[in-house]
Simulated scan of single mutants.
Amino acid sequence: MSGRGCDPVEGRIGGRRPKLPTLAGEELIRSVREERYSMAKAARLFGVHPSAATWLMAQV
């Protein structure tokens, strides 16, 4: 089979992969909350765009 209709049958779900693995995202959130790093510096350290870090913080 091919096409999007068979994706759920084959175990695939649509959407993009996350920019950060779960543990790295949790560490970014923790470091900003504990004020070890600013949001911009944490984003640079983890290699993501500052807007991705802001989005991640907003999801919590």
Rank of each mutant, 00 (worst) to 15 (best):
S2K: 11
G3F: 00
G3S: 01
G5R: 09
G5K: 08
D7C: 11
D7T: 01
E10V: 12
E10H: 13
G11E: 09
R12M: 04
I13G: 05
I13N: 07
I13H: 09
G14F: 00
G14A: 07
G15C: 06
G15M: 05
G15N: 07
R16F: 01
R16M: 04
R17S: 11
P18R: 14
K19Y: 11
K19T: 09
K19P: 00
L20A: 11
L20S: 08
L20R: 06
T22E: 12
T22M: 08
A24P: 02
A24L: 14
A24Y: 07
G25A: 15
G25I: 06
E26N: 13
E27Q: 15
R30T: 12
R30M: 11
S31D: 15
V32E: 00
R33P: 02
E35F: 10
E35P: 02
R36V: 15
R36A: 12
R36S: 13
R36K: 15
R36T: 13
Y37S: 08
S38P: 03
S38E: 03
M39F: 00
M39C: 11
A40K: 07
A40P: 00
A40N: 02
K41D: 10
A42Q: 06
A42I: 02
A42E: 01
A43W: 03
A43P: 04
A43C: 09
L45I: 14
F46C: 07
F46M: 10
G47K: 08
G47Y: 07
V48P: 06
H49F: 03
H49L: 05
P50K: 13
S51R: 13
S51C: 06
S51P: 00
S51Y: 02
A52D: 12
A52G: 13
A53P: 01
W55H: 13
W55D: 15
W55L: 13
L56S: 05
M57R: 02
A58S: 14
A58H: 07
A58Q: 13
Q59E: 10
V60F: 01
V60Y: 00
